[in-house]
Nucleic acid binder design. Structure first.
Lengths: 348, 348
DNA sequence: TTGTACGCGTTATCAA
DNA sequence: TTGATAACGCGTACAA
């Protein structure tokens, strides 16, 4: 009585075996027909496909992945999902993945290093074919990344990247962008320029600070350490950092501020306005991101237009091409970013 | 020479079998130790765990899922990811899923019915334990949803929901919210209120239109069909819809507008301003969402504060509890939404 | 407490 | 062109 074997067990989905029994062929032939393999008789194929459709067959990707040792899935780790930059990056990733026939498992680290490690471990367990990572703020060492890479899982970092550990990186040129912003202010005559900096644990924090310093040096301006305050990437931090700058004696106060990103700039603007100072007349400010809010705030924000969608799309394409062996890991890919000049820098 | 069997094959990850060989037990004992089963000798367990750690063992979720016929994964289908509402919903889903030990596969339909069907089919193939869906605009019939549900996969709709097909639904009370908005305008003396409506293919489009009509009826105001224009959910549509309203002879023009959501309202505001009309003095307007931009636009937008995070979290919790058999499908869950009064309605 | 045999649903391989 | 068999890596059920 092994007839049972060829029936759908109750509460279970149709398997290739069931279709095979219906059509009168083996499961293997069904597999071949369903996957468009060349060596199947045309008529057999038609019969199989018809039966599959009739029975509402849904191929089991899990079993397939186990057999092929390949999941057609990309793991994504972002530090946060709510603000405008990452959703747009994810949209880019999704589009590239969808076109190439890959799916996405999305995780977020909430800027927490240990949650990020968890996420990566989980994605490894799920045997994703590759990993797209934008690092969390609190990550102190790269051992987890190295371990994943050593075991052969392709990794591509985007936006917040980690160079020289064997993974490709996709981002804007943070240093150069920050030089452009700072020099834009210098060119318009500002003499005392502050920087609200990101955490030095992430690449964009370091790169942007470096750009700020370089721009000062190139233009023969003194670097004053008290004008660099850590703000982090959010409004609250930007507000607090600006507050502390405003505690300086008036003659030592900056006349312009380069914020590490737009949200930090928004927070800073709030602080400036609460002190009854005008933007840009009393203090000019520039950001970096081009958040949806940048053109709407009371003094529209001059910023760098970071091509989020393109970063995501490029990162995913790079990863997929590494997975499929068409390109080698360890590339540095830089996407172009434009300056968006508005009113907050005082030059309009 | 079956020694090979117990070594990690080259280029492959460590399996339970390899650990078993190292420790000198069977793979089954390893499985038990790793999964915290009661019936393992304490010392054996320690040795297994130590070996697993040393070897960098990463349990294969794929194989596990196949054996258990359960993936600990939720499939998510959203119509779009870029704008502010859905990312926040996804954050809520992610948090709830993470706490309950589930992972997320994220897909987006780009508002396209056939892409949505693809996404659902894929998620079925990946054997997700349940589905969270917010329907695409162009979906014309519910057969795909019904088919999934019939086969036993729990489905929870959120925001854009589908009632009475055996799935639970989580959303705000669209009709009631729209009544409140409309009556807010009526209460402030507006006499000729227009509605920029969403597509009638999705629940929120229909519900909000219904609320608008009910509010008029309750307050003895005439319903004028020419004052309802389809705008869709985006700025562009809002702009176009408002443009068409502004073509009406001046005496027939609305003095207030209820937009189906905030983006549509922003588009409409642009049109109003291009006609050199003032908001709210010439035309008042209200939206629904509480987009990040709502308080920043030139005339801050009165709107309904839609608790996106909570909708996501509740939807995921509901789904998980159905998956785990702790609650029954087909519930209607309504989350509270507050009115956020700003200047665009003219009552401040 | 531990091990053996088998199933989960698919695909690669090799023989027919 | 087709089929039988054996993986893929883990868990259940039962036996030892």
């Amino acid at each position: 009585m092994n007839k049972k074997k060829y029936q759908a067990k109750s509460g279970r989905r149709i398997t290739a075996e069931v279709i095979a029994a219906q059509v009168g062929v083996s499961a293997m032939t069904v597999s071949r027909a369903l996957n468009d393999r060349p060596n199947v008789d045309a008529k057999t194929k038609v019969r199989v496909l018809r039966a599959a459709k009739k029975l509402g067959y849904s191929p089991n990707h899990i079993a397939r992945s186990l057999a092929l040792r390949r999941t057609q899935t990309l793991g994504v780790v972002v530090p946060e999902i709510s603000h405008s930059f990452f959703p747009e990056v994810i949209r880019g990733i999704e589009d590239a993945a969808y076109s190439a026939g890959y799916h996405l498992i999305l995780t977020h680290s909430a800027e927490d290093a240990s949650r990020e490690q968890d996420a990566i471990s989980t994605l490894e367990s799920k045997r994703v074919d590759g990993l797209l990572i934008s690092t969390a703020q609190t990550v102190k060492d790269n051992s987890k990344y190295r371990a994943v890479i050593r075991l052969g899982t392709p990794v591509v970092f985007f936006d917040r990247v980690v160079h020289n550990i064997g993974a490709s990186c996709v981002s804007i040129d943070d240093e150069d962008c920050c030089i452009r912003l700072t020099e834009h202010l210098i060119g318009h005559g500002y003499k005392s320029i502050a920087h609200l900096s990101g955490p030095s644990t992430v690449s964009i924090g370091r790169g942007r600070l470096k750009g700020y310093k370089k721009a000062l040096a190139r233009n023969g301006m003194n670097f004053r350490p008290e004008l660099v305050v850590q703000s982090g990437f959010h409004e609250r931090g930007g507000y607090a950092a600006m507050e502390s700058l405003l505690q300086l004696p008036v003659r030592l106060r900056p006349d312009a501020v380069v914020a590490v990103n737009d949200p930090a700039a928004f927070g800073a603007m709030k602080a400036i306005q609460e002190h009854k100072l005008r933007i840009p007349q009393d203090i000019a400010i520039v950001g970096m991101t081009d958040d949806v809010r940048a053109e709407l705030v009371s003094s529209p924000l001059t910023t760098i237009r970071q091509p989020a969608y393109e970063i995501g799309k490029t990162a995913a394409e790079t990863l997929i091409s590494e997975i499929e062996g068409r390109s080698k890991p360890g590339q540095r890919i830089t996407v172009r970013a434009e300056l968006a000049v508005r009113k907050s820098c005082g030059c309009l």
